[in-house]
Each structure stands twice: as structure tokens, then as C-alpha cells.
Amino acid sequence: MTDPSLDAVDRRIINALQGGFPVCERPFDAAAEELGIGEAELIARLDVLQDSRYLSRFGPMYNAERLGGDVTLAAMEVPRERYETVAETVNAFDEVAHNYARDHRFNMWFVVAAEQPERIAEVLCQIEIETGLQVLSLPKLEEFFIGLKVTV
């Protein structure tokens, strides 16, 4: 991974394109115009940014439920001395998308997403079997709308 530092133009690009990317024949041209730069410059900079540690992705965010899949947020209370091993076990599942250590009795929090809804229960059950630890499943019941956006 390359690791350039972000300059002012990079920051403007990141701030603008988090909100959305045009869907038209020449989307980079359209986005570049908004940013006051040229299409070629935007493409060149995105090429670099894409491989940098700053971005995880440039593309779509899907609504798993709308695709017939399912998602849950799972929590575990993991003994400190077993934390790394349990994290490896959990992260080995393709269905696990994010895994965060948090400072709470429930100290491991991860997202499980699957195209087949029944697969979620299987993965959680498998994790309980492999680790011998309880997994709390906290699926979203309601989402209150906010645009996810940070200013860099």
C-alpha cells in the first residue's frame, strides 16, 4: 500500500465523493467539474487514493436486506488472554465484515452479513461451538436516517 499524505485537493475529493458519485456517461468528468479540477486529475488522484490506507473502497454500499440477505451485529465477552485467538476464529468467516475491540464487558463487536438469511444463525452457532463462548445477536430493528459522512 502506498501512503501519501493528503493534500487540500485530495481532501476535497474525499469529502465530496463520500456523499455520492454521479451516474452518467462521464461521471469523473462531472464530479471533477464540481471540484474545479480536470477529469484526468481526478482519475489520477483516485487511482493513488484507492491504494492508500485512507480509503477502504470506491464503489457501492448495498442494502443487504433489500437483496434478500440479512445482517446482524454480534457481541462477545472474550477473556483477555484468548482475545487474539478468538478474533482469528471469528475473522476467518467470510460473512464477518467488521470486527472491533471495544472497552466493555462485551469487548468484541462484529458485523455478520450473508446473502442467505439462515446462514447468519449458522455462522453465529459455529462461532459459539469453535470458541465455547456465547454470542449475542443484535440485528437492526429500525434505522434512523443520517448521511454517513466525515470531513477529513
Binding site: 443487504a64 445482517v71 467470510d94 465484515a97 470486527n99 475491540a101 462485551f106 463487536w109 458485523v111 437492526k140
Partner: peptide, 26 residues
């Protein structure tokens, strides 16, 4: 109420179609 700060991110990937691209919900 409780506040759970994250200490470390072990896995942050934009998931596959098969497992859905997720908001960082955790």
C-alpha cells in the same frame, strides 16, 4: 446508558456482494 469506545479494528472490509457491502455498523 453505556459508552463503548473502540480500541482496535481487526477487520474492516467492504464485504462482498454475497455478504453485502455494509455500513460500519460496529
Amino acid at each position: 446508558t453505556a459508552v463503548l469506545f473502540s480500541k482496535r479494528c481487526f477487520k474492516q472490509r467492504g464485504a462482498r456482494f454475497s455478504t453485502a457491502n455494509m455500513e460500519p455498523a460496529a
